[in-house]
Design a protein around this nucleic acid. Structure first.
Lengths: 201, 201
DNA sequence: TGATTTAGGGAATGACCGTTCTCTATATTG
DNA sequence: CAATATAGAGAACGGTCATTCCCTAAATCA
């Protein structure tokens, strides 16, 4: 038997898990965790409430799965975007532009699942708090990495405090997601990226 | 009759409005809007539910009043902090430090009412969305003002794009409030402020 | 084929929450 | 002092929400 074709025991799942999670995380992003009802989720995911509970235990389970999906998709897209740069400096510009683009127009208004929902839960849910902290750390580590890469290839000043700069840039991109909820244009956000790049010289 | 001593008609209010709002906004900040129940509010405000509804019409009314109170208090404190600086550059450093300080330790974990709660409501409540947008605009305008002041007194480079820099710094300070929810030290945040100041030279 | 296992769907349930109602208390007005 | 007006407190109410239950459907196992 081919390993990848191994089937589970009973009736197979009829819906596409990733597609359902993409719909769920869109609703969570727009409405926030507590304002999202099971009804909102069943409508968006095109599933009956019983099926939701069969597949995910409870509402929090849907959220946790959506959160992981969101992070996986965003991380993947970010890494693709970053790869377009050649020097460390260019990669950093790609990374900041990626966040700027997500903070503008409709996508900006939808907001960031990590920022809006997770902040809502992190206070009273240690597991979510940990996931949020990790998400932040991963982004900060990526930026720090690119700064060091830039210092190595000469595109970023060797005199800057890499750790502090990475932290400031992390704040800047997370702040873009917040400010972007009030509605900004791509030009406004890209101009901010241009200013942020000055911290690397 | 002395104007300031003019009393209203019926039984006078027994609780202190500002104190009650300070308690309410603390709960809204910690729990978010939807996760805050009337029970949470009556407990924190030390008022019976009937009294809350008599004084504020409904839950949203409590939130709106808390939001205004929060903005008034924070704005006032920010302006006091900024006044400690002499040059525009110094005033900007005071302003950024003010946000950094609020984004660290316990206050950082409590979070910002504008960021966490208002984002939660802004999607489906135009009035709240307007209030949030205004809060952002006021902060951005203050930063822009200080940059121009610095350019006038020679403490900030005349070559920088004042509007774009103000926007980036707004993103940075709002981002601090988000990142600060995951727990950061004063030193970490102040180092980020130091880096942000480089955008002014 | 019959037994077993898992998924889908939707009605039923029980708890909680926001709001209203009612009654009492305390002020001003005339 | 009566009349009026507003505040305080908490019980009562109605609706919504998350969750569970039960029945049916579709797969594998023996």
């Amino acid at each position: 038997m081919i390993a990848s074709a191994a089937r589970s025991r009973g009736r197979p799942r009829e819906f596409d898990m990733n597609q359902a999670l993409d719909n769920a995380l869109r609703v969570f992003s727009e409405r926030g965790y507590h304002a999202t009802s099971i009804g909102n989720l069943t409508e968006a995911m095109q599933l009956a409430s019983g099926s939701v509970y069969k597949a995910f235990k409870d509402k929090r389970g849907v959220f946790l799965a959506s959160f992981d999906r969101y992070r996986a998709v965003r991380s993947s897209k970010l890494r693709v975007a970053v790869a377009a740069g050649k020097t460390g400096y260019e990669c950093l510009h790609e990374a900041l532009s990626f966040f700027a683009n997500a903070s503008q127009g409709l996508e900006g208004k939808q907001g960031c699942l990590v920022v809006s929902c997770a902040s809502e839960l992190a206070t009273f849910d240690p597991e979510v708090a940990q996931k949020v902290a990790t998400a932040m750390d991963v982004n900060e580590a990526l930026i720090l990495d690119l700064i060091r890469q830039g210092q190595a290839d000469g595109s970023v000043s060797p005199d800057i405090d890499a750790a502090a700069t990475a932290r400031l840039l992390l704040c800047a991109v997370q702040g873009m997601r917040v400010v972007g909820k009030t509605g900004r244009t791509r030009e406004e956000m890209m101009a901010a990226v241009g200013v942020a790049m000055k911290t690397l010289t």
